[in-house]
Design a protein around this nucleic acid. Structure first.
Length: 215
DNA sequence: CAAACGATCGGCT
DNA sequence: GCCGATCGTTTGC
């Protein structure tokens, strides 16, 4: 995408999310910074691993065949908001809705590097607090979609929340970290064996060099 | 009403 | 590293 469109250190503009190519939006989310202000504290992470989901043709999507249910309805809304659902009764899965109104596109955030609020993240994750920085933080703090959402304090209560609503305590920023194509690795998505031919599509993207990625 | 489900943790080797 | 138990919402039969 045109780097000139988005200034460093700024929240991503609505046009970032409204693009129809969800695979490109997914790639562009790598290196961006997700910030939450919840539980009276601020946490921020650099996104390192994502998966794209694209209805109607993608059988791995909850909205496969443009199936509209109460849960999936938010995916059909305009991009730039959260789709958060519960998996296995325990894990909160945080997705970024993208595309124009009517297109059920979403990007699952699977892993990230901790940047700010490490102590708060440790508390939420039940990890003994330490003098952690991005350099020495344990990967399990923010690696894996359930672990990441837990570290950030995100729950299904916030599904549907727009990044452009002042009442939403989370958003995504560009801090000038633009990754070259060679820094991005691709592969099939995880845990979707039920999805037929869609299971083979290489719609998982990660920062090749990062240790905050599920191997 | 029951099965499925975009995963994690702890306890072992 | 591998393996097993696990939890509760959502959906479809």
């Amino acid at each position: 995408m045109d780097a000139q469109l988005f200034q460093a250190g700024q929240r991503l503009p609505l046009e970032f999310y409204l693009r129809t190519d969800v695979l490109q939006v997914a790639r562009d989310l790598l290196g961006k910074v997700l910030v939450t202000e919840l539980d009276g504290g601020r946490t921020a992470v650099r996104i390192t691993e994502v998966e794209a989901y694209r209805a109607p043709e993608d059988r791995a999507s909850h909205a496969w065949g443009n199936r509209r249910t109460r849960r999936t309805e938010v995916m059909f809304q305009e991009g730039g908001r959260a789709y958060i659902y519960l998996c296995y009764g325990i894990h909160q899965m945080f997705n970024v809705v993208s595309g124009p109104d009517g297109a059920a596109h979403a990007i699952l955030l699977r892993a990230a590097e901790p940047l700010e609020g490490l102590e708060l993240m440790c508390r939420r994750r039940n990890i003994p607090p330490g003098k952690f920085t991005t350099a020495n933080a344990p990967a399990r703090l923010t690696t894996g979609p359930g672990a990441l959402a837990q570290a950030l304090g995100l729950t299904t209560a916030w599904t549907g929340g727009s990044f452009f609503d002042p009442a939403t305590p989370f958003w995504i920023e560009d801090r000038g970290d633009h990754l070259p194509e060679t820094a991005i690795a691709t592969g099939p998505r995880i845990g979707i064996d039920y999805a037929g031919e869609s299971a083979a599509w290489e719609w998982r993207f990660w920062v090749r060099e990062s240790r905050f990625v599920k191997r």
